[in-house]
Simulated scan of single mutants.
Amino acid sequence: MTASSFPLKPEQVTAAWLESVLDVAIDSAGVKSISEGTGFAGSVYRVHLSHGGSGAELPDTLIWKTISGDERTRRFLTTLNAYEKESRFYGQLASDIDMAPRPYFSDFDSESGAFCLIIEDVSYMRSGDQIEGCTFEEALSVVCEVARLHSAFWSERVDERPEWIPTFDEGSGYFRRMHSVAWRRLERSFDHVPGGLIEAARRIAPCVPEIKTRLSLSPITLVHGDLRLDNVFLGDSSHREGIKLIDWQAIRLGRGMYDLAYFLSTSIPVDLRRQRQDELIATYSESLSLNGVTGYTLEDCNEDFRWALLDIVIFVGVIGSTLDFQSDRGLELANTIMSRLFHALEDNSALDLLD
């Protein structure tokens, strides 16, 4: 489908267009932005529907997601095939992954790079706040659910992977070229980048291909790639779902500990992570075993955790220097991520892997 066949602007999300893709009579539709200051890589809107009960299974609100309104962000994400990956994820995989929002419509235009998603609104669950950070109980829930996701796609189960899902080492040349430039830009753009993190980025620079190759070695699984608290919705006693994960644009295949390392190093207050990190990693390892994974030990988990922290420095640098974080919340979010990541690197002596 071409971009002219789906909406790119809020005013184009009309009742008539929604009727055509949802196959339900829609009386009216209202659209409101919900992505400002969140660090989302696309433009995200809540669509309020009036359908007079004609769609018995259709909720009153849905989420519409399209390309970012920021030109630099849009170019960068197009280079990484991020919009295509998320569109294909919702079109081909999401229906079989219960922690992904339900897809209603998904399309991508390869010529323009535009994409369009209509997905479930999961705001009936509790949204995470990455700046505030999560509790131990919330972290435990995320760890167990992510282990279940990884187990379902573990190693030989992804041998027949779709060609659009890259491994960690695909595109490593691009990240190697961008890494040093990105961190210099971050140092100029943000007031509170830890000096130790800048030095860590310098040490990592010549090792980018090695790090990405290490995270691409078997056993591999389906990795969310951007598992941070702002992308997590948490259930409670009134809902069966444990969690829902949004923003699947960084999906790839690699060592599952990357997701865990990204979450623990950037979404949990530093003191809490220091107190409970070992317990959470052990819980992940045990959950893999309970879900049928064999041959991947707790020692493997801990070593991969440290390698993943190195790659997160690469990812945070390139993403942080490209996406639009200039709102008050965006700036606070970026500074929070970098501060927590620096402490995680130090606490786990991750840079020693490069000696």
Rank of each mutant, 00 (worst) to 15 (best):
A3C: 14
A3E: 13
S4Y: 12
F6H: 09
P7D: 04
P7R: 01
L8V: 10
L8G: 13
E11V: 11
A15F: 02
A15P: 13
A15T: 05
L18P: 14
L18M: 10
L18I: 07
E19G: 12
S20V: 10
V21F: 04
D23H: 14
V31Q: 01
G39Y: 05
G42I: 05
Y45G: 04
V47L: 04
H48A: 14
G53E: 10
A56E: 15
P59V: 03
I63P: 01
I63G: 00
T66F: 06
R74F: 03
R75Q: 12
T79R: 15
N81C: 14
S87M: 06
S87L: 08
F89M: 13
L93T: 10
S95T: 14
D96L: 13
D98S: 14
M99T: 12
P101M: 07
R102M: 08
R102V: 08
D109I: 09
C116V: 02
L117V: 07
V122T: 06
Y124N: 11
R126G: 04
R126A: 11
S127Q: 14
G133M: 09
F136H: 12
A139M: 13
S141H: 09
S141M: 12
C144P: 02
E145S: 05
V146K: 03
L149P: 07
A152V: 09
V158Y: 03
D159H: 07
P162F: 11
P162A: 10
E163P: 11
E170T: 14
F175Q: 04
F175Y: 15
R176L: 14
V181Q: 11
E187R: 06
R188Q: 15
F190L: 13
I198L: 15
I198F: 08
E199P: 02
A200N: 02
R203V: 13
K212G: 01
L215R: 00
L217W: 01
S218R: 07
P219I: 07
D226Q: 11
L227Q: 01
R228Q: 14
N231Q: 02
V232F: 03
F233V: 05
L234Q: 02
E241D: 15
G242K: 13
K244I: 00
I246W: 00
D247K: 05
W248V: 06
A250T: 14
L253H: 02
Y258G: 03
Y258P: 15
D259M: 06
L260N: 03
F263G: 04
S265D: 04
S267K: 00
D271G: 13
R273N: 07
Q277W: 07
I281W: 01
T283M: 06
Y284I: 05
S285K: 04
S285F: 08
E286T: 10
L288Q: 09
S289C: 15
N291T: 06
G292Q: 12
T294A: 15
T294H: 08
G295A: 10
G295K: 12
D300Y: 11
D300K: 04
E303M: 06
F305A: 01
W307I: 08
I312L: 02
I314P: 00
I314M: 00
V316Y: 00
V318D: 01
G320Q: 01
D324S: 06
S327M: 09
S327G: 11
E332P: 06
L333N: 05
L333I: 13
T336W: 04
T336D: 08
I337M: 09
I337T: 03
M338H: 02
M338L: 09
R340A: 02
R340S: 02
F342A: 03
L345M: 10
S349G: 06
A350P: 09
D352K: 12
L353C: 04
